[in-house]
Amino acid sequence: MGILIETAQTPAKWLNRSGPVLGLFLVCLIFGFLVGPQFFNPGNLELIARQTAIVAVAAIGMTVVIASAGIDLSVGSVVSLSTVVMALLLRSGVPAFAAVGGAVAAGVLCGAIVGLLVTRLRLLPFIVTLGMMLIARGAAKGLADEQRVEAPVTWINDLLRSPSGSQSWLLLPVGVWAIIALSLMTAATLEYTRFGRHIFAIGSNERTARLCGVPVEACKLAVYSIGAGFAGLAGVMEFSKLSVGDPTVAVGFELDVIAAVIIGGGSLLGGRGSIFGTLIGATIMAVIQLGSSQRGLPNWVQQIVTGIIIILAVALDHWRQHGHNNSRS
């Protein structure tokens, strides 16, 4: 006990920072060993990046939501709604850029509705987004007439394709670069802006945030809109992979997204989480999926492994917290 800051935190802090990276390293090592050196071929690495992309985009948004102690269960449905909106717009002759805008706007709209319900009616985000999960899915099916929506081919279909010919200097698919740029922007927003710090303040102790004059309601509204906006963007990526609008796609996707955030160090209690960690988390999941399938492991093994990783990540998190409490007394 004393007024000086204990330095015994360093191992825990170190683990806090590098835990997800360490996990990624470990998972890569294991699959490198299982699959063989070809696992680290540039082609394969790019495959991993592409596989990661869709979950990663949605997970960036989810990080923001979870940092504010919220949750969004509707992202899977929003993704499917977004692919449908995208396909319908393209089919009606709207330019590709505008179609992307429309798809993201559909997501933002869903998020804004969630945000309004959460702040105005003081409903739990778990419940509201559970409802939105069904509403968005239903809307997607209704708009698509319960079938896949074919759409003309545009540059969007190349978003996640390896650059070739005159564009090969890009090294990575355009979509992956877009994700990197968005991650940097979001990370900077969370870390360095007033708005970002307010999100963490709300997630950490909402009552205090309110007492200190943080505009809690406006922040939450923004948080859910941003979260679902990213889900809409994930829908654009999904569309580029599928090249059709599919109202039945991405069922259960939200769980992958939440898992990526949690593996990356986010806490469902709010106040913690980082974009960098989340990206690592999404990559870990992609490595497991790809590695397992390349090794010829059946799907059920993948699922068990992913489940174990999630529990392990949360257990580590718990242990970290526990360490804090011990050193407090």
Partner: peptide, 27 residues
């Protein structure tokens, strides 16, 4: 106590009245 445990000491002290320019906190 009503503090945000995940934020730093300084962030807690200025919470709600962060000095900022264009939305970026002046550290």
């Amino acid at each position: 106590l009503s503090l945000a445990p995940d934020l730093s000491v300084e962030e807690n002290i200025v919470l709600g009245m962060e000095p900022a320019q264009y939305g970026f906190v002046r550290r």
